[in-house]
């Protein structure tokens, strides 16, 4: 019984691990050219990023803006004047940081 239980535990562990790794978080931002930046998110299995927390920080790490991905997995914010980073925070192992200087 104990063997069976531990085997079951192992299987469960393996399953949860493979689930966690099966999809990769993806986020991309572009400059709208009107003083705003639009970010899109998603996962490599096609699932939606709706509701994922989005944070915009300045060079010192101070939060400039916070929000969530919309129903269509989009987040638009006012482009900060100086250096900044955009944080896509979909949980541990699922965070993405995009540098403002990389946004075209």
């Amino acid at each position: 019984m104990r063997v069976l239980l531990s085997m079951l535990f192992c299987v469960a562990l393996l399953c949860s691990a493979s689930l966690a790794f099966a999809h990769t978080p993806l986020c991309s931002c572009f400059d709208n050219g009107d003083g705003t930046v639009m970010c899109e998110g998603g996962f490599s299995d096609g699932s939606s990023a709706s509701g994922v927390k989005m944070v915009v920080k300045d060079a010192s790490g101070a939060v400039l803006e916070e929000g969530t991905m919309s129903e269509v997995s989009e987040f638009t914010f006012k482009k900060p004047a100086g250096d900044f980073t955009v944080h896509f925070e979909a949980g541990e192992g699922h965070a993405i940081i995009i540098k403002g200087s990389d946004i075209k």
Partner: peptide, 9 residues
């Protein structure tokens, strides 16, 4: 079929 950014559709 072209893909951008790895999110399938």
């Amino acid at each position: 079929v072209v893909n951008v950014g790895g999110v399938p559709g």
